[in-house]
Computed example of a mutant assay.
Amino acid sequence: MQTIQTIIVEALVELLDMPDASQISPETRLQEDLGIDSGLLLELFMLVEERLPDAAVDPAVLRPEEFASVASFAALIARSLSETAAS
């Protein structure tokens, strides 16, 4: 099974039409390093939700620090999955 972080990295590679994931690490900042704006962030959410249908994150209630980096975004998705499993 793929990790959440791997799924996010693969979605970023697809979204940004990158040749590979060599420029993406857990510390990679979505906005500053990859140029992810609000429109691309929404597309990223949709790609991740396709791969992880149990992830239920409402982009409207997010705080910027929750999607500042690949690692923080992965943590957000992990929390969403654990909350979904608990309910």
Rank of each mutant, 00 (worst) to 15 (best):
I24C: 04
E14C: 06
S82D: 15
L34Y: 09
A55N: 01
I7S: 03
I7T: 15
A60P: 00
T6E: 14
S80A: 14
L62W: 10
V61Q: 12
Q31Y: 11
E49P: 00
V9S: 01
M18E: 09
E14L: 14
V61W: 07
L81M: 15
S72T: 15
I36A: 00
S72M: 07
P59N: 05
D20P: 04
M1H: 13
D20S: 11
A78M: 07
I8Q: 08
A11V: 04
L16N: 02
E49G: 00
R51S: 00
P19C: 13
L81F: 07
A74I: 04
E32I: 08
R51H: 00
R63Q: 15
L15M: 09
L12G: 08
V57H: 02
I36S: 02
E14V: 11
L81E: 07
Q2R: 13
A78R: 14
A78H: 12
V13R: 03
P59H: 05
L30I: 11
M46I: 09
D37Q: 10
Q31M: 12
S69C: 03
D17T: 15
G39K: 08
V9K: 03
D17Y: 09
E32S: 10
E65W: 13
D37F: 06
A11E: 04
M46Y: 03
P64H: 06
D37I: 10
V61S: 15
M46S: 10
L76C: 13
E27L: 12
L52F: 04
E43D: 14
A56T: 10
T84G: 11
M18K: 14
L30M: 09
A71P: 04
E65Y: 13
V13M: 06
I8C: 11
S82H: 13
F73C: 11
S87L: 14
V70T: 02
L76R: 12
P53D: 00
V48H: 03
P64A: 10
E65V: 14
L44R: 08
P53S: 02
G39Y: 09
E27P: 07
P59V: 07
P53V: 00
R29I: 02
D33Q: 05
T6Y: 00
P59D: 04
E43F: 01
E10H: 13
D37W: 07
S80G: 15
A60F: 07
L42S: 06
A55H: 01
P19V: 12
A74L: 02
M46C: 02
I8R: 09
M18D: 05
I77R: 05
Q31D: 11
T3L: 02
M1N: 10
L76I: 13
T84S: 14
A68T: 13
A85Q: 15
Q31I: 09
L34F: 07
L34P: 08
F45C: 08
F73L: 15
P19W: 13
E27V: 09
D54L: 10
E10W: 07
A21V: 07
T28P: 05
V57M: 02
L42P: 00
L30C: 11
V13G: 05
F73Q: 11
I7P: 01
P53I: 01
T6W: 00
A71I: 06
A74D: 03
E27S: 15
D58H: 02
T84D: 11
A71M: 06
F45M: 12
V48N: 05
